[in-house]
Design a protein around this nucleic acid. Structure first.
Lengths: 224, 224, 224, 224
DNA sequence: ACCTCCGGGACAGCCCGTTCGT
DNA sequence: ACGAACGGGCTGTCCCGGAGGT
């Protein structure tokens, strides 16, 4: 039906507009009037698609959640080097926050004190913890490294990037994430990896650690 | 004077009540009525001391700023082991956020999208960057470690702790900070320190790295 | 549309109610709640039609302006005896102020110190000045009579009537206007007209100068 | 006592400041804080001298009333040419309004819809009416001239000058008053006076009718 | 007596999230 | 899907007392 298609387009425009206004002004300050005006529809149309402001925000968050799930639930869901998946996912998350308004708004909504119980950060945190537990179990972590500590650190850092990025967008650079891993990986993984990193020839300045190539460059291998 | 003393007490009660309400509901949702009621004074009394909601929030932020400055501007302002000062300050900051409502509210206000230009995080960030630059200059950092990257990581992590702590207060534990340094210090400082940490006997579980004792346990010493 | 009709009726009721309250209590003292209550609508409905109190007042003034323009821009816009048009218009203005709340409120708003730049009195004044300049040019005025002085006098008098009429409504009688012209016209127009007025038989007490018949009774004719 | 002298000075400063603020912003908009600040005293001092805003306004009005009484109750209270006294008083009134803030504020307060029952205009009007009744009785008026009409016209005109002068101060020029009398006197006084004015040699442009010299120039004399 | 600092209550304007009739 | 209307609530600010100094 053309009718349904138009409705779907309106709905998408509303979510997008809502995400923009939420991201710019925060949940409480964002007025439904501003959102519907930006979406180019009437005030009543908004309430036709979304019963209330709360539900509209939930829809935004839901869409952001799907993006995050696409990042965390990538193709090689459970195989491969677990730390590599962390490196990849954090890079992609920051990129997603930087590029996608809905994701950015979703995380913003999650932290708003006027809205309780956002699932976004909780899922992200659970995934990080899960992956690190796997890494520990599979022997990818250094002996003294605590999977729990590492998870908290990584979660906190990504949250920090996201929050700070809402004020100054230069925080949302992947270079920041690369720098994080540069400092974190040596201690996190075993001593030989560490040795390869610290005692080997210094990496050329122009080629920092990057997503998907991190461990290749470090010559990382599994602890026997 | 009796008069001025009462006024000062009222003012303090207002700032405290404001901090509580701001911390609980966020800047926008917090109503001046709720604040004055919690402080036990009338609406007009609030307006006598603070011209507007904006100015009240600034007062809260200002008081938080002083606490932060007391943390960052500790006794050995410019001497001693720079990394140690970072470890100490981060511990104290998290403790301050956990224990002091005003500090917690101050950081919360800083991140509110409806309020631009809070000095709190900016000062914290500048201080971290400054200390790390000093550390680099004085040879306390490992050769490959970037002071800038480290600063960003530490700032982002503390911000993340603070933000997450507003939802679940268990984030605001100093154990989290200790865990962070446990992962960070080895790569940040030079390789011999690192070796002492990774190859030595495992620390007893009950005695993690703590503020003020970190480097003693690591037997850290200056890179020649 | 029925919808738009109802909206228009609400809008009109609001303007009317606003005019009443403005006329009774003045612009500053008039509360929007009182206005919306008198109009029989809610507080929000008022805000839907008029964004602010200022704009509501402007709407009232605008409607009054249209009435005034209808008075000044009568049918024989530029022909005929200019003084006669003044006599007619002043009578109609006072009658309008007396009978039409909106006009009364419009002039009241114009003089409120809290509201700058009402066009109502300015337009009225310009029109009076313009007509008198025409009268001078066409030879309708007595030789020594200054068009400018006359304009100022007439404007000031009508303003005075209007202002005093807000306290005691008996000021807003057309008899007052007739009395004004009785004193003014002789000196304003030429000496023969004057003679006809002063030396002729006294007018019967019961039949004063009236709108539309003034010059007929004076037997006025153009100065050669 | 020095104490009492200081109190009197404070009281005077408050009345003066109140007059200024009332004249600028109107009664309702004028805030006691603005008044006390302009007077250089505290908010409480104002309330010590004047129990309420109403009473403060009454004090301003009272002082203005005394000035008006000085104008209307001049030396030759009941003798002399009555019309001359009108000419003089109107000139002096306009000058007083232009120069004296308290008088200006007093008249402004009188017309404020939020304040009922100002005596200022009422006394001015009564005086005008009284003088014109005397003039009529003593035979100073032209035969057809109505004392009542003339009184209303003069009162309305002075009120109009005053009101318009609050927006554009050029209205408060004595030239305006002179122009008024130039148009009014011929018809108001008897035909011989009139003849002297209209048929005699034209007055030089540079020397308009002036206070205190009006009738001299017209060669006015009593009707037998 | 004269004046100040502080505080109390009230309410105004604005605006917002939401619903109803069409 | 929209225009119109509703009612509630927030901030700002105003007028005014009252306890206490000088």
């Amino acid at each position: 039906m053309a009718k349904q298609e138009r409705a779907a387009r309106t709905r998408r425009a509303l979510i997008r507009a809502a995400a923009e206004v939420f991201a710019e002004e925060g949940y409480v300050s964002a007025s439904l009037t501003a959102i519907s005006r930006r979406a180019g529809v009437s005030n009543g149309a908004l309430h036709f698609h979304f019963e209330s402001k709360t539900i509209l925000a939930q829809a935004v968050e839901e869409e952001a959640l799907q993006v995050v799930r696409r990042i965390t639930g990538g193709p090689d869901r459970d195989g491969g080097y677990a730390p590599q998946r962390l490196v990849d996912a954090t890079h992609q998350l920051i990129r997603g926050i930087a590029d996608n308004v809905v994701v950015r708004a979703g995380f913003g909504l999650c932290g708003d004190p006027a809205r309780r119980g956002g699932r976004l950060r909780r899922e992200w945190q659970s995934w990080i913890e899960g992956v690190l537990r796997c890494a520990k179990r599979d022997g990818w972590l250094a002996e003294g490294a605590s999977a729990e500590n590492a998870a908290h650190l990584i979660v906190a850092t990504t949250v920090g990037f996201e929050v700070l990025g809402r004020e100054n967008e230069w925080w949302l650079s992947e270079r920041r994430v690369t720098g994080m891993w540069d400092l974190l990986l040596p201690r996190l993984t075993d001593e030989r990896t560490l040795a390869a990193l610290t005692s080997g020839p210094p990496r050329p300045a122009g080629e920092p650690l990057r997503e998907g190539r991190t461990f290749d460059r470090l010559g990382m291998r599994r602890r026997p």
